[in-house]
Simulated assay, not measured.
Amino acid sequence: MSRQKRYWTVVSVILIWLGVLLTGCTLEGWEMAGERSGNASLPSEAEGEGELRVLFLDVGQGASQLLISPSGYTMLIDAGNNDKEDEMLRYLEAYGIRHLDLVIGTHPDADHIGGLDRVIDQLDIGEVYMPKIQSNTKTFESLLTSIRDKGLKVKTAKAGLELTWDEQVQVKMLAPATVTDDNNNMSAVVKVTYRDTSFLLTGDAESESERVMLESGANLRADVLLVGHHGSKSSTTARFLNAVKPKYAIIQVGDNSYGHPTKTILGRLAKQKVEVYRNDLQGTVEIVSDGQGYQIMTER
């Protein structure tokens, strides 16, 4: 290197250090600032602390609920139909979910468990609960295969169970309380209580299961109700609705030929002055509880 080039190199280094000293920074400070900048888009550890998030995912004419506890534990109840498998994985990736502490398949119908096999294949799974009812469909067989291949065992979903999840949140199963060969009335019904707030998630439970729950003396009172069977008139009887007394109702529904949700159920909810949210109209619905009140956000 020539003497002139060495001179300008030394001058450049001196000017850089002068700039550092004048701004009061250090090289260590630059590295720290760079790290903070790189993580600026990531949530802090404290963000969302003390909140329970319940997401009613828009999976069309099907059902799926993703729950994230105040301590960060996760639960997935159902996963939509077979054609929603990739969409379910995208949802979970978008919410940063790589591990599910609890997975509940409410009953063997494809529009509820169709996407669960791929979810179990792709994610780290804790415990799996399903009611003790069989189905000879390929969808059900595929789910059992995924569970077996992952080295998991199915625990029986039934009334009276209190699931271990987050010590701040109570998770109780209220149904099925009796054994029947009807898939819908064997639906796992889950009540989630966080301090003064509560959610009743009913799968496709119909009037017979509702009657048994009422007669069992279980505390059905809940602020948020997942309307049974996508708003079919076979569910959400007036007596059941009177016992739950919800402030908010979620109807997981998409384009369908069944007439869901029916005018009967919408009228019944309106009469009780329940605020209704629907996946077909508002997309994914997220309800955040701080233990005392709710914040409700919709996709559209």
Rank of each mutant, 00 (worst) to 15 (best):
Ile133His: 02
Asn81His: 07
Ala205Leu: 05
Lys132Phe: 05
Ala157Gln: 03
Thr178Asp: 12
Ser142Cys: 15
Asp182Met: 02
Asp83Phe: 11
Arg90Asn: 05
Glu141Ser: 14
Val224Gln: 10
Ser146Cys: 05
Asp121Ser: 14
Glu87Val: 10
Ile77Ser: 12
Leu92Trp: 03
Val189Thr: 02
Glu127His: 15
Gly217Met: 00
Asp117Gly: 07
Gly217Lys: 00
Glu208Phe: 04
Leu220Ile: 14
Leu102Gly: 09
Val190Asp: 07
Thr180His: 09
Thr106Trp: 01
Asn183Ala: 12
His107Tyr: 08
Val154Thr: 13
Met213Val: 06
Lys153Val: 10
Met213Glu: 06
Lys132Met: 13
Thr139Arg: 04
Arg221Gly: 15
Thr145Trp: 03
Leu201Met: 10
Arg90Thr: 13
Thr202Gly: 09
Asp86Tyr: 04
Gly96Phe: 00
Met213Lys: 02
Glu141Val: 15
Ser142Lys: 12
Gly160Tyr: 00
Phe199Trp: 12
His112Glu: 12
Glu93Lys: 13
Ala110Asn: 12
Lys138Leu: 14
Val189Met: 01
Gly114Glu: 03
Ser207Ala: 15
Asp149Trp: 01
Asn184Ser: 09
His107Gln: 11
Asp86His: 09
Leu143Asp: 10
Ile97Gly: 14
Val190Phe: 06
Asn81Val: 09
Gly96Asp: 04
Val179Gly: 07
Leu116His: 08
Asp83His: 08
Val224Asp: 12
Ser198Ala: 09
Asp86Pro: 03
Asn136Tyr: 14
Glu206Met: 11
Ala218Ile: 01
Gln168Trp: 03
Tyr91Thr: 03
Trp165Asp: 12
Ala79Leu: 03
Leu144Met: 14
Asp83Pro: 11
Met88Cys: 01
Tyr194Ala: 13
Glu85Asp: 15
Ser135Pro: 06
Gln170Met: 13
Val179Asp: 09
Thr202Ser: 08
Lys191Val: 03
Asp117Ile: 01
Asp83Lys: 04
Leu100Glu: 15
Glu206Asn: 07
His107Leu: 04
Leu100Val: 04
Asp149Val: 08
Lys138Ser: 07
Thr137Cys: 11
Ile104Arg: 02
Asp204His: 09
Leu220Gly: 12
Thr145Pro: 06
Tyr129Ala: 09
Lys191Glu: 01
Glu87His: 14
Val128Tyr: 00
Glu141His: 13
Leu89Arg: 09
Leu152Ser: 11
Ala175Ile: 06
Leu89Glu: 03
Arg118Ile: 01
Asp109Trp: 11
Val171His: 07
Val169Gln: 08
His112Ile: 13
Ala177Val: 06
Gly151Met: 06
Leu200Pro: 05
Gly115Arg: 05
Arg98Asn: 15
Asn183Cys: 10
Arg98Cys: 12
Glu127Lys: 08
Ala175Asn: 06
Thr178Tyr: 10
Thr139Ala: 10
Arg211Asp: 13
Val192Cys: 07
Tyr194Val: 03
Ala159Gln: 02
Gly105Ala: 13
Asp181Pro: 05
Leu201Ile: 14
Asp111Trp: 05
Ala218Trp: 00
